[in-house]
Amino acid sequence: MSIIEVKNLSKTYEYYKKQPGLLASIKGLFKREKLFTDAVKNINFTIGEGELVGFLGPNGAGKTTTLKMLSGILYSSGGEALVLGHVPYKREKEYQKQFALVMGQKNQLWWDLPAMESFILNKEIYEIPDAEFKENLDELVELLEIKDILDIQVRKLSLGQRMKCELVAALLHKPKVLFLDEPTIGLDVIAQKNIRDFIKHYNKEKKTTIILTSHYMEDIKELCKRVIIIDRGQILYDGQLDDLIKKYAPYKVLNITFNDNGVKREEIEKFGNVQKYNSYAVALEVDREKVKEAATRILSSNLPVDDILIDEVDIDEVIRKIFRNTHANQPV
């Protein structure tokens, strides 16, 4: 049984064109030009229990809109969505008690009070029994190592600490589904890693179904086996991350450094596609099957090789390529 089912889901925003100036404002009272944006266009996907899926896409792609529709914050313009068997926009209490939403850069914690107070508030809202609350709280606090900061005013905490507290607040009621919208945005490298580790651990332990949207490839690489790539409201790819690399980058990269007088471009071109070139360092794209052979040939040639590395394609490069292609209207 799938936890999340999305069929032909669409969302269209209407908005009015607003011209600057007083005259235009007055005219605007009588006649306004209505425009439409398709934020999400007929998307389909299903997610099973315990999956940790990454939503990837540029700004405005429709990731957050989709999450909001699944949270019941937004009504869809077409199609249907079912989470845990509920229709999200109906905002049934039973549904709301089973999922949680965390949005990076937006807080649900009270600013002037210690995080603990906000936790207690959530306890009442989600009707969590005392014993269960204590148990969940202790567990989460220990996992995230925030015991010392529970009594400090939220506004005095660092961004990373705040995010940890936000996560605790969201997970106190042991939701079966967790929507994370850019949870690591704005955090420093160490804080990002902490949050990531926590999410990974939590998903494994509790089998919580998680959808994560992020700009940071690190998040996706670390956490998600499956990615859904969205661009301009449409799904470009839905599948395993590894397969994505294999499909869109059926090559590996040879990073070669040279000494002595270096090499000329013509000399190295015959071994593969030149990705980056300067006379002392070259990056070469070679088909996966042929890469070892190519490396051997280069090493046994008379080129002044200093070092040679066989690298996996940078996934950022792959994603970028995908977007570049779609934006240039090439078929994916």
Binding site: Q96, M103, N107, Y126, E127
Partner: peptide, 13 residues
């Protein structure tokens, strides 16, 4: 304005 209202409507209250 800041988008925090979204949290409010996603809660069982």
């Amino acid at each position: 304005r800041l988008g925090n209202f979204d949290y409010t409507i996603s809660k069982p209250v």
